[in-house]
Nucleic acid binder design. Sequence first.
DNA 1: ACCTTTTTTAGAATGTTTCTAAAATTATTA
DNA 2: TAATAATTTTAGAAACATTCTAAAAAAGGT
Lengths: 123, 123
Amino acid sequence: MTKYEKEIYDIISHSYSHLTAEQIYEILKKKFPNVVLATVYNNLNKLYKNDFIRKLSIEGMPDRYDRTERHDHIVCRDCGKLSDIKFEDLTDSIKRQFKNDFLSYDLKVFYICPECKKKRGME
Amino acid sequence: MTKYEKEIYDIISHSYSHLTAEQIYEILKKKFPNVVLATVYNNLNKLYKNDFIRKLSIEGMPDRYDRTERHDHIVCRDCGKLSDIKFEDLTDSIKRQFKNDFLSYDLKVFYICPECKKKRGME
DNA sequence: ACCTTTTTTAGAATGTTTCTAAAATTATTA
DNA sequence: TAATAATTTTAGAAACATTCTAAAAAAGGT
């Protein structure tokens, strides 16, 4: 792992906030003021390809990067707010159906977060 | 529902191929040569907000639109190819955990499709 | 030290999606 | 039905995220 790859990996694996490339870049700049956004993307892609990090695509927002430790997500359908949840582990069940022939899975539960419920006027 | 909203809804609900906005636009143009891509986006957003269609965000590809009928997806981690699968229904299970307070969920299973396996040289 | 490979940089380019303001259409009301 | 209001569509610009390209810098190997 190169310097930046390691740094970016550390940022993601110690964060619980599903950072965007831009946010990672901002964090990295504090320590390495000369680093460039393309470097962040390069290393994110490399880390993702090698399964060191997860990549989350939420409809209508930039991609977010996450630690690989098994957990699921709940997403507000109105504002896109993303939080961690831990739902039952489906690995074995999926393995059974696909005869081990899968890498990972991604479960997203959609809801309306309390703030957006207020906005919508549905208490 | 307006004319285009209805047309777009029909295209999506009769298709099993997870169309992009661009693809829907191309289909629509055959019947309405003057329609414009922004109209497609407007109506897709409206349909999505009102829960008439699903929206699928796959890492590194344009959003895709899908019928709401319950089913899941399997995605090739290398090329992004998307196919329908039907995994056990998790609705009740999630309902139990979230006390009915959720709208829907989205399960994506990642794998390497046969073509990409060949490319990678892993038969 | 020299050559090779990999990584980073800088900035342009690409692709998707949203935005804006005007025009067209549809619905409402008098 | 004419007048007005509200909604939808258009056209094109703009925004935003991400990738690409070529050169420079850094790291690795002999």
